[in-house]
Simulated scan of single mutants.
Amino acid sequence: MHGYGQVITAYLEHLRHVRRVSSHTVAAYRRDLDAAAETLAARGCPDWQRVSAADLRDLLAARHRAGAKPASLARLASSLRSFYTWQMREGRAERNPAQDVRAPKKPAHLPSTIDVDDLAGMLDVEPDDTLAVRDHALLELFYSAGARLAEVAGMDLADLDLAAGEARVIGKGNRERTVPVGSRARTALSRWLTERGALAGVDEPALFVSKRGTRLSRRSIGLRMERWALSHGLPVHLHPHKLRHSFATHLLESSADLRAVQELLGHANISTTQIYTHLDFAHLAKVYDAAHPRARGRAEDE
């Protein structure tokens, strides 16, 4: 491995003394590059300059077949890209064969959903104080709108239109979208708005505020959600994204309209969102009203 080892040593010295990365990071690069060099040498590549993109893809594929985890493969691919970038800058290489080499994607692990009946048991309650009224409205909004934690935490009073059953949220990439607010959520939010003045500062724009009268933080929302689930007997751990995933799953189970659900969720993937640009909110609201378990029901009769 002489043709490989000297270059690795020089690169690690660069990381250590020029970039001043941590010893842990240097050790990780050493493991990745030493292992890659050993495999490549065994395949007949005499040095780093003779390595092709196909060689590196074969290397990652072999590691994948041997059981390497996607995260480890992604780190190896990243290490090789950075290593070759440095070699080109130092005049040690004329090309970067790792530039377009990507590791197998890590499979998406969606959070488990919450049973509709379990959710109903947790939400069909009568809150007995101001903070409980706020938390109940929070939970109903999360499940009604399928919103992200940051989106709900960032909502202002001006973003909510209860009469229309809509709310404006700012999603990833500062993209704005309209989300539905079902009848159960409207009832809970109306009650919160009557109580909000007891906590909120005069000039506070936030929809949800803390005991101090300022915007409720993301961390506080998560903690309050966990506490609510425990105190109301929910048999599973609760967090905002689990409600978002339950929202999507329950709608898909009822409507089978994947396009509408993706639009309602505000997916960031441009190739996905472009497919659904012809869907307007009226269509989405129709799907929502017909399918969401808390869009209609007893609240309309109470």
Rank of each mutant, 00 (worst) to 15 (best):
173 G>I: 12
247 F>P: 05
268 A>E: 12
14 H>P: 02
97 P>V: 07
210 S>I: 07
56 L>M: 06
83 F>I: 09
118 D>E: 14
34 D>K: 05
21 V>R: 11
89 R>N: 08
147 A>V: 09
78 S>N: 01
266 G>C: 10
194 T>H: 12
95 R>Q: 14
72 S>Y: 01
294 R>Q: 05
246 S>Y: 10
92 R>D: 03
46 P>G: 08
151 E>P: 12
96 N>C: 11
75 R>K: 01
298 R>H: 05
178 T>C: 09
95 R>P: 07
74 A>P: 04
149 L>H: 05
126 E>H: 07
86 W>F: 09
228 W>G: 08
34 D>L: 15
161 D>G: 08
213 G>S: 04
150 A>F: 09
69 K>I: 03
41 A>G: 08
10 A>K: 02
145 A>P: 00
28 A>M: 09
128 D>H: 12
58 D>T: 11
17 H>P: 00
148 R>N: 13
266 G>V: 06
278 H>I: 05
302 E>H: 01
136 H>D: 14
285 A>P: 01
83 F>A: 12
115 D>G: 12
168 R>V: 13
147 A>P: 13
288 Y>M: 01
70 P>Q: 14
287 V>S: 06
9 T>G: 04
279 L>S: 03
297 G>I: 01
275 I>T: 12
19 R>E: 15
131 L>S: 15
180 P>K: 00
60 L>T: 01
157 L>N: 08
12 L>I: 09
233 G>D: 07
252 L>S: 01
285 A>Y: 00
18 V>R: 00
169 V>G: 13
256 A>C: 01
68 A>T: 02
195 E>D: 09
118 D>G: 03
272 T>H: 05
299 A>H: 05
51 V>F: 12
13 E>R: 10
78 S>A: 14
30 R>S: 11
228 W>M: 07
242 K>G: 07
96 N>W: 10
157 L>V: 15
98 A>N: 04
43 R>N: 04
24 H>E: 13
141 L>W: 06
156 D>W: 13
26 V>N: 02
29 Y>R: 07
121 G>N: 15
47 D>R: 08
177 R>W: 08
242 K>A: 14
170 I>V: 15
13 E>L: 13
218 R>I: 04
230 L>E: 13
104 P>D: 11
150 A>C: 11
94 E>P: 00
107 P>I: 07
54 A>P: 03
32 D>G: 08
239 H>R: 04
60 L>G: 02
128 D>T: 12
70 P>G: 14
244 R>Q: 11
219 R>N: 04
162 L>Q: 00
129 D>E: 09
223 L>K: 10
300 E>A: 04
169 V>R: 12
96 N>F: 10
291 A>L: 06
261 V>D: 03
26 V>Y: 01
172 K>S: 12
197 G>D: 15
124 D>V: 03
213 G>Y: 05
69 K>E: 15
113 T>K: 02
280 D>H: 08
291 A>H: 02
241 H>L: 15
8 I>E: 05
147 A>Q: 03
274 Q>F: 07
269 N>K: 06
98 A>E: 05
29 Y>I: 10
229 A>Y: 12
35 A>G: 03
3 G>Q: 04
228 W>Y: 07
227 R>E: 15
242 K>T: 11
52 S>A: 06
186 R>K: 14
7 V>Q: 11
176 E>C: 02
207 L>W: 13
